[in-house]
């Protein structure tokens, strides 16, 4: 392995399916957190519900993939209603705890051994993306740009996913410019003020939760289609935290924040991974300091630090305007 491999590997991840999936999830979360100020810590549950609806409907109940995708998106609407009715009246920090708990409850139920026949326990569902694969027009040899390689199906998924992401960015740009978006931003700033002006805050919060949740489900569905697999470990609490990191890197309440955030996040996450892997293998770092097992942890250690430093020194994200976008006091 040489240094070019580290770089090209990082670029591949920065543009690859994973980055696209986190970008979509962050676009959804941006509506919740960035624009409405909802501290939803259950985004992973929306992703999971979407992905599992598709996986289980196709594999367990042998339904049509496209129909299942529609059901997956509707399932997110249902989850938003179930989750939102009790929690949207809560204070921000309570909302965070309630959503994180709900997400973990959903994950444990779907991953439970007693529902093995329906949802496949810890292995999850797999082998459901055949219809998607059959649409792949990219030649089987994959796509190569100099040292950067993408497998054929991955590239197809990337095209579909990134197109969807850009389309959503466009729609969100229009929505956030509208009076509707203004109400959401008003709620983020001070919901009592918005209430005093005759707006049904609860209703808007619910719309926001549903819309962002459905986009989260789309991310989960793309994740399922990309790997042809959904498993409980894909949708752990950490997934939500990573989506937050993506959003905060790009800057909350910025239309293209999630795109920039996802690309940067995965570039560095994978770059660090490859770097430390290479460094330990080439003995640049002696074994008694870091073994190759430990090298694989470095990226998350750095990630944790970055999240802290970002929040302390640049809460508005890398590109944000501090004046406008700093996350304020309460």
């Amino acid at each position: 392995m040489n240094w070019l491999d580290v770089l090209s590997g990082a670029v591949e991840q920065a543009l690859g399916p994973q980055a696209m999936i986190y970008c979509l999830a962050a676009i959804g979360l941006n509506i919740h957190f960035g624009y409405t100020g909802l501290l939803n810590f259950g985004q992973a549950a929306f992703m999971m519900v979407g992905g599992y609806a598709v996986g289980a409907l196709v594999q367990t109940w042998e339904q049509n993939l496209w129909l299942s995708i529609l059901v997956g998106l509707l399932a997110a609407v249902l989850l938003a209603l179930v989750l939102g009715v009790p929690t949207l009246r809560l204070r921000a920090d309570y909302l965070a705890i309630a959503t994180i708990a709900a997400a973990e409850a959903v994950r444990q139920v779907l991953g439970a051994a007693s529902l093995n026949d329906q949802f496949g326990g810890q292995d999850g569902r797999f082998g459901f993306a055949d219809d998607m694969k059959s649409l792949n027009p990219i030649e089987p040899g994959g796509v190569h740009f100099g040292p950067i390689d993408f497998r054929s199906y991955d590239f197809f998924i990337m095209i579909v996913g990134w197109s969807l992401a850009l389309l959503l960015c466009g729609v969100i740009f229009l929505m956030m410019r509208s009076p509707w978006g203004r109400v959401l931003k008003g709620i983020r700033e001070d919901e009592d003020a918005v209430r005093s002006l005759g707006k049904n805050v609860y209703f808007y919060k619910m719309q926001s939760l549903i819309l962002g949740g459905v986009i989260g489900a789309a991310a989960g569905i793309m994740s399922g289609l990309a790997t042809d697999n959904v498993a409980p470990s894909d949708f752990a609490t950490d997934t939500t935290f990573f989506v937050y990191t993506v959003l905060l890197i790009g800057g909350a309440a910025r239309v293209f924040g999630p795109v920039a955030g996802a690309v940067i996040f995965w570039f560095f996450l994978n770059g660090l991974d490859l770097f430390f892997d290479k460094a330990t293998h080439d003995n640049l770092i002696p074994d008694w300091i870091m073994t190759s097992d430990q090298a694989s942890l470095m990226r998350l250690i750095v990630l944790g630090l970055v999240l802290m430093l970002l929040m302390i020194y640049r809460p508005q994200g890398i590109f944000g305007d501090r004046r406008e976008l700093a996350i304020d006091g309460r």
């Binding site: 729609v171 229009l174 929505m175 410019r177 509208s178 009076p179 509707w180 978006g181 203004r182 109400v183 707006k199 719309q207 819309l211």
Partner: peptide, 10 residues
């Protein structure tokens, strides 16, 4: 324009 669906259509 404060309706979700009409928000996109300026």
């Amino acid at each position: 324009g404060e309706k979700l669906l009409s928000s996109v259509f300026a």
